[in-house]
Amino acid sequence: MIYSDYGIKMPPSKKTLLECRLQKRLNALNLYSFKEYCDFVFSPEGQRTELIQMIDVVTTNKTDFFRESIHFDFLSNHCFPAMTIGRDAGRPLRIWSAGCSSGEEPYTIAMVASEFAETRPFNFSIFGTDLSTEILKKAALAIYSEERTSVIPLVLKRKYFLRGKDDKNKTYKIVPELRQKLSLQRLNFMDHTYNVPYNFDIIFCRNVLIYFDKETQEKVINRLCDKLNKGGIFFLGHSESITDMNVPLQQIKPTIFRRI
């Protein structure tokens, strides 16, 4: 069911990992066996209340600020200069962080876009989606530990973060101006069509497809490209590829593509 409904590969080698993750839910529900848990998940009540909880513990959410920084350099040096020339102020540049996890990626994009807008003002909006409801709550909260924010250049950290008041447990929160640029929505890549509010100029889908088999990857990329404007830019993760796939993308640089 995890594979067919959510696309996540679940070979026998992942049995122990899955058991460890689901044990948290057994403990929370005071259940004593995986059979009891399965019976509950597939019951009408479980489908309403537990299914999303289960998927939240099954999904992997690994992310960092400025992860694969070459992509953000490409935004500043190529995408934004080309896409903002003559752009109407009322027509925002739309960017989709597909698989946004706890928000580090879309907020990094927002910082980079804001920095560029200081030299050439333009309007932009960022749309973040993820399968996990719990991780989307963290992205909306936009509070990060000192360790998570240590990779951010100090000049950007001072400009775009508010420091928490607890000196022992140091945290930083994204400033309201950036949080307002991001809208969030739960989305399952296995849906036949993606219910998103508009088409996009740029799509980031990085380090998500590695959890799918190649056939599923191709389907997902094509569905994402249906929402990418002609000439739009598509970013993949460093370990992902479109080799031998029938998708409407032309490579510009490794892991960077243009919609054709």
Score class of each variant (00 low, 15 high):
Y3H: 14
S43R: 00
K173T: 15
A140N: 12
L209W: 07
K138P: 08
L29Q: 02
C20F: 01
P11W: 02
G86N: 07
V112R: 10
E104S: 08
D88P: 00
G90L: 13
S241F: 04
N77I: 00
V247Y: 01
R223S: 13
G231F: 14
K165I: 05
I143K: 11
Q250D: 03
Y6P: 08
P81S: 03
E45S: 08
A28L: 15
G7Y: 05
F116N: 08
T129Q: 01
K138R: 15
T119F: 02
F234L: 04
S183D: 10
K227R: 14
V155C: 06
L18I: 14
Y211E: 09
P176G: 02
V151K: 07
L228S: 10
L51P: 00
L93Q: 01
K9M: 15
T149Q: 09
S43E: 10
Q23V: 03
R120K: 13
S76P: 04
Y32C: 03
I202S: 00
L26Q: 05
R94G: 08
K181A: 12
S132D: 15
F34R: 01
I52Q: 15
S4D: 15
D5I: 00
L178S: 04
L17T: 13
P176F: 02
I174R: 01
K138C: 02
K14M: 13
I210P: 02
E118I: 02
T119L: 03
R186Y: 00
E115Q: 06
M54T: 15
